[in-house]
Structure formats: structure tokens, C-alpha cells
Write a protein that binds this DNA or RNA. Structure first.
Lengths: 238, 238
DNA sequence: CGGATTGTTGAGGATACTCAAGTTAGGTGG
DNA sequence: CCACCTAACTTGAGTATCCTCAACAATCCG
């Protein structure tokens, strides 16, 4: 447990700890460990006994599920400040998915058995944790709504916009998705195939809306993309 | 506010209040009201300021969202013991959907402003409430997974099985969905059309798996239905 | 430089949608 | 109680979307 060097100034700003006293924060952190994960490493795997829960400090995680038929689905991307692996909150003994570092990442972790005590001792934490789960529920419901009512291109547009909003970095040319993301990843987020994603992104590139590349994505015209997401048909540039 | 006649014996068994002392329960109930809703009545509507949250005691609620394009999606069915309208947990000022009584129903309600105080005063309630939201998150994620990877027939099978499990009553012939449900409803739960639902259910009726009817549904062979949901192709009856 | 991963593009076809017409069931009012 | 009216449902035909299959090209890594 390399919990010695937990810099409180790094952790204090996280939403999750809003409204907690410094002593409370120290108490919560006292049982935490931290660890670095290189890109491609997994934090936990689907079906394993959930013995830890995590709070991402830096980097990105991709949480996937594999169906019994072997098809992979990307359930969510985890950004710094987000928790994951909180099986206890779902009343599950095992992890429902696999978390992989989509970029070099640093994460705090606690033993799962600390979950209920922490919640009971720190009601503020409980409220904040609930809001995290609430956020996630809303996002999941948004995806259900999109998959129920929207064609592939619009779903891809929504997905790319979400990525830009949550994992985007402003660059001169537009908003850069700041971790390596493949067409296959986007396909698994939208319930399509990499072929469809490739075709759609190529069309958008021709219109100057995005700029692709091997595991690269730059959103050059978020406004046009939003129009597509909201149901406008793509036309020529202006 | 008709909060006088709240029978504690009716409310005590609900999961939500597991582990709470009688005094705590009384305290929580002190600011609650209750009301009866006839089938078709709405408890709250999408976009309204969320001034109350609800706990269903009896009946069924259908929570729907309407997209900007006017397509309706059934987000969830609420069963007795479930909460709904808990916008506070989602950090939203308004209701994200509309809740309609799918059967004659009775519900408790609290002013939304009581949400945070109740959570802070009763950590057990907070933990229980989080598990409710966690359940819902899991269900939403299951739907995302299904819509990403499964064809229409399998999604409908999953949806019907979920209905049977949550809202089914055993009858001599099979499991009866115990509130009026239309093909349109099922279509809006599965991201299909009522036409597809009608065709699929007709095929299942011919195989003796279900028994349909106007706003009626009886699952006669849950096992076969599960096979379809899990990916078996339908064949003739043995 | 060679192998592997990732991405592109084309052709063909199946699923499920739209459009359309008609049927059944149930409730309402005379 | 029956006739009517509406909402729910059924069924058919045609078709668009997007998947599958396939071959190839580009990019990255060691």
C-alpha cells in the first residue's frame, strides 16, 4: 500500500470531497492506496470478486463489458475525479465490467469493505457519491434514449460530442480527444461497427467537421456536429 | 397533505427502510404525504420543476421521456417499493421524464427540499437510496448492452422477461403482466416499432410461448423465452 | 524493415422500418 | 342492449439503413 505520498492539495479540489472537513478527508484517505497504471493495463476484470473500489486521479479508463456471445461494449469512459469499481453501490459481489487504462493513469483505491463505513461516517461523502452515480445513471439513460430513437450517424455524433466535452483539450484547430481512441472503440460505444464509424467519420472529414487519424480524433466544428446530433441532415459546408 | 393515515406496518417492510429504527422511520414519514392516482393520471411531467419526490406503495408507474423530435421512450417501470422523481439525486432542478400511473396506484411523496436533510440525518437511508439508484443504473446499463448487441426479437424477449419478473403474477396458465400494457409500450421499451412487436408476439403465440391480447400479456413458457433472449433461434415446439 | 494492428472502401444482403389498409376489441351513448 | 366510434392491433409490400463479408491500404512498433 503506497499510501504515504497522498498530496491532499491534489485531492481536495475533487467534487467527491466537496463540503468535507480536512480531518474527515484525512480519515477517508487513511485507508486508501494509490497506484500508477500504464496504458493498456487493467485495474480490474469483469467477473472478479470486487475487493477494491477506485477513484481516478489522472488519465482515462475505459470500462467494458463482454456479452456471453463475446461482443464487447464500452459502458463508460472514466475521467479524473470519477469513481469506478463501486460494486458495493450496485449490491454486487463482483465487477460487472473490466476497467482498462486508456491512457497512463493514476488511481486511488480502497478495500471494498471500507465502502459502507465511509458512507455511514461521512454523510457528505454519501451525498456526493450518490450524485456521481446519479450522473452515471443519467448518462446511461441518455444512451438508451439515443439508441432507441436515433440512427447510427446521430448516435456517433452524440458519442463524439460527449468525448469532446469530457475528455477534450482545446487546440488551435479544435478540440482534441486527449487519449488514443480507435474507430472500434467508438463503434462499441454506439452499438455500430467500425465500418460504419469509419464511413461516417470520413464523410465528416470531407465536410471539415472533424479530423481523424489512427487512434486520433480532433473535433474542428462542434457546432455542426451538434446540429447532426440534434437531427439536422448533413449538407455541404455552408 | 393527507399524511395522517400512514400505516407504518405497510411501510416497514420496504427495502428502502431496512435497518432504520422505528423513531427514524416516523421522523422520515413526518413530512410525507400520500395520494391515490387513477390509471392514466400523471404524478409529474417532464420539464416541470422537481418539487416532490415519490415512493410508490401500490400499483405501477410508467416513466417516459419525449425526445425533441417527439418520439416517446419508456425509461422505466416503477414497482411498489421503488422511488421516483428523485431529481435531487441527479442534481437536476427539473424532472427528466413524465410519470404516469399504468395502474391504479398509491404513492408517498416528500418535498424535494427534504431530500438532503433526510440523507444527512439517516445514513442508513442514504445507503439504501444509493442501492436503489445503483439497481436502476445496472438496469439502464443492461439495456444499453442489449440495444448495442441484440436484434429486435431478443431485446423484446429481455423486456418481456423483465416485466414478468418485476410485474408478473403467477396464474394457472403462466405469468400474467399485471397491468395493461400495449404493443406500443413494449416498442418504446425496446427501441422498436409496434409493428415489429406485433409480428414477434404473434410468432411467439403460434409457438405457445406467450398469450397476447389487447393490452394483455401472459408469459406461458418463460424458459423458452429465456432461450430466445440468450440468443437461441426459435424453432418449432419440441 | 517486417509484422501486426488499425483503418478504408466496395458489394451484397438481411433486418426492421415506413407506408398503407384493414380488422378486432372495448367503451360510450342513445 | 345494441350501434357506433375509437384505440389497439394485424398484416402486407416496398425499401432504407446498416451489417456482413472481403480485400486492401496505411500506420505504428520493435
Amino acid at each position: 500500500m503506497s499510501s504515504q505520498a497522498l498530496d491532499r492539495s491534489l485531492i481536495r479540489p475533487l467534487h467527491l470531497f466537496d463540503g468535507m472537513l480536512d480531518e474527515e478527508l484525512d480519515d477517508v484517505l487513511s485507508t486508501a492506496g494509490s497506484r500508477r497504471y500504464a496504458i493498456g493495463e487493467t485495474l480490474f476484470e469483469q467477473g472478479q470478486r470486487a475487493d477494491k473500489f477506485y477513484l481516478l486521479l489522472h488519465g482515462r479508463l475505459r470500462v467494458t463489458q463482454v456479452t456471453p456471445q463475446g461482443q464487447q461494449v464500452v459502458m463508460q469512459m472514466i475521467n479524473p475525479g470519477d469513481m469506478c469499481g463501486i460494486a458495493k453501490a450496485l449490491q454486487r459481489p463482483d465487477y460487472p465490467g473490466t476497467a482498462t487504462a486508456a491512457a497512463d493513469s493514476i488511481s486511488l483505491y480502497w478495500p471494498t469493505q471500507d465502502w459502507t463505513p465511509i458512507l455511514s461516517k461521512h454523510p457528505v461523502f454519501a451525498v456526493n457519491a450518490m450524485q456521481t452515480i446519479g450522473q452515471r445513471l443519467q448518462e446511461a439513460q441518455a444512451r438508451v434514449r439515443e439508441m432507441s430513437t436515433e440512427a447510427a450517424e446521430r448516435r456517433i455524433a452524440h458519442s463524439v460530442l460527449r468525448l469532446a466535452g469530457q475528455s477534450g483539450r482545446q487546440e488551435p484547430e479544435g478540440i482534441r480527444i486527449d487519449f488514443p481512441i480507435s474507430k472500434q472503440d467508438i463503434a462499441e460505444m454506439t452499438g455500430t461497427t467500425l465500418h460504419t464509424v469509419s464511413r461516417v467519420l470520413t464523410a465528416w472529414e470531407d465536410l471539415g467537421i472533424v479530423d481523424g487519424g489512427r487512434q486520433k480524433l480532433l473535433v474542428k466544428d462542434p457546432h455542426r456536429l451538434l446540429l447532426i446530433a440534434e437531427g439536422e441532415t448533413v449538407g455541404p459546408s455552408r
